[in-house]
């Protein structure tokens, strides 16, 4: 596999094991994450969680819903709820960037769109390079940080349990 992003469509997740919830593993026991940018930080999620990446389509505003719900978009004829990942993660809202993309993920039998500022690349790291969740300050979001990886000296990627965050927000 080269640098191109290959999104497996129907990867099944073994939800029994927490490690497998947050990261896919490839053949040589490397963890595979999709890296994306919010503000000036890079985050990573289990690659298998992401079904598709699309350019942001026109958004339709939905009145009287939580602020992190941007509205609905049309994906291949289906209505998909679009979530502002920045608001969801407690970031401030700043200008929409040209590099913005929508990650499509499946949560509770529903396909959901997540607006992120940019996609970086698929990050593959050996299992031993995965640093378990550091003890950060108590906070709603830090609970969902499962670990950190450092693909190179300059880069640090925070791995989050996106599914859990979404489930909590949708509760």
């Amino acid at each position: 596999m080269s640098n191109s992003i290959v999104i497996p469509d129907m990867a099944k997740l073994n939800t029994g094991n927490r490690n497998s919830v947050i990261a896919g593993k490839d053949d040589d026991m490397k963890l595979v994450f999709l890296g994306f940018v919010l503000g000036d930080e890079e985050f990573g999620v289990d690659l298998h969680l992401v079904k598709q990446i699309v350019m942001p389509p026109p958004v339709t505003w939905v009145p009287r819903v939580q602020p992190h719900i941007l509205g609905v978009i049309s994906i291949r004829g289906n209505v998909v709820t679009l979530i502002d990942t920045r608001l969801l993660m407690g970031f401030d809202v700043s200008d929409r960037r040209n590099s913005a993309r929508v990650l499509l993920v499946d949560v509770r039998d529903e396909r959901i769109g997540l607006l992120v500022d940019a996609i970086t690349q698929v990050r593959r790291v050996p299992v031993q390079a995965f640093e378990e969740s550091p003890d950060l300050d108590e906070g709603s979001m830090t609970d969902h940080v499962v670990g950190i990886i450092r693909p190179d000296k300059q880069t640090q990627v925070t791995i989050i349990d996106l599914k859990e965050i979404l489930l909590e927000a949708m509760r």
Binding site: P57, P58, T60, P63, R64, V65, Q66, V72, E110
Partner: peptide
């Protein structure tokens, strides 16, 4: 989607052809 259960005021969405719902 279920994620919009909190709003009861819409029966759904429709595509009118301008790519926007």
């Amino acid at each position: 989607g279920y994620s919009l259960d909190e709003t009861r005021f819409f029966a759904g969405a429709t595509d009118l052809g301008d790519q926007k719902l």
